[in-house]
Amino acid sequence: MKKTLSTRGITMLVLGCLALFGTSCISLKKSELIQPISIPDYSNEFVNEQRDAYHINVGDNLYMKVYSSDVKTSKFFRTDFPELMNDSYIYLNSYKVDEDGYVKYSFIDKVMVKGLSIEEAQTAVQTAVEEYFEDVTVQIKLVNFSISIIGEVNKPGNFNIDREQITILQAISMAGGLKEFAKADEVRLVRKSPNGTVVKNLDLTNSKLLESEYFFLLPDDVVYVTPRSSKSFAFEKFPYGLFAGIISIGLSIYAITK
């Protein structure tokens, strides 16, 4: 009879410990990104009306360079000199879009670039340069395209983007991906607007995100990956010492009654 009671007690202890331990576990369903709403609704193609490249705004800094196979032209634009292609060099050699949307480069007339994509701006500046030189190629890069990723990611920080567009998933990948306790279904996007600041909650587990206007990030966007409330319990409140003690006592009772 004594052995039966002890065995029952051990069983209850083990079940209690398992239940307690289970409260600190995270469902993989809550951390899986881009989940289909249902199997019939799943599609391999999502249309996003905001997929167009970034359009230049007033105050943007543009790095501009003119290249040519002609030696004299290259010397004129100093493209025959070695360049330190780091962020500081590019910023110091950039040109700011004025309040009217124009950019002034070298001796050419100012060129309207507001509202243009980087590719369209390159064409506009090249057309202006070709009025004076032949066989030239214009390179333009948006200098101030930087974003910040903070919160439950492995490598939070500020990132300079060397392309015309980037998605929120690509940005999180640059930040090392989500941590174990990241709340993927509630990621906050902080974005500047004409009236101030907009804060948008995004659900990265929903495949509808691929069609959202917020799927593509803009310069100065801040992505905050919020933590789950279970993180606080798991790392601060979970009684690991008590848990180990209960297991130890259970094993001792089992050894005595065996």
Rank of each mutant, 00 (worst) to 15 (best):
I249R: 06
E120W: 00
E134N: 14
Y132A: 07
Q170R: 09
F133G: 00
D100F: 11
S252D: 05
E236I: 04
E236P: 02
K179Y: 01
D52C: 03
N144C: 08
E120C: 05
E119T: 09
S31Q: 12
N86Q: 08
K208D: 15
S212H: 06
Q139Y: 10
F46Q: 09
V14G: 00
R191D: 07
V113F: 03
S94Q: 07
H55L: 07
L142M: 09
F181W: 13
N160C: 04
Y240G: 03
M12Y: 13
F145R: 02
Q122Y: 02
L202D: 05
P82R: 05
A128G: 03
D220I: 02
F21K: 13
K2S: 08
F238W: 11
V125W: 03
F107Q: 13
G9R: 03
E120F: 01
M12G: 09
F133N: 02
S173V: 03
D220V: 01
F21I: 07
F145N: 04
S6N: 10
S68G: 02
G9D: 04
K75G: 13
I90P: 00
Y224T: 06
S173T: 12
I256R: 12
Q126W: 03
Q126I: 04
A234N: 08
K183C: 06
P239H: 06
S212N: 14
A234G: 06
I246K: 01
G22P: 01
D41E: 14
P219L: 03
S212Y: 06
V71H: 12
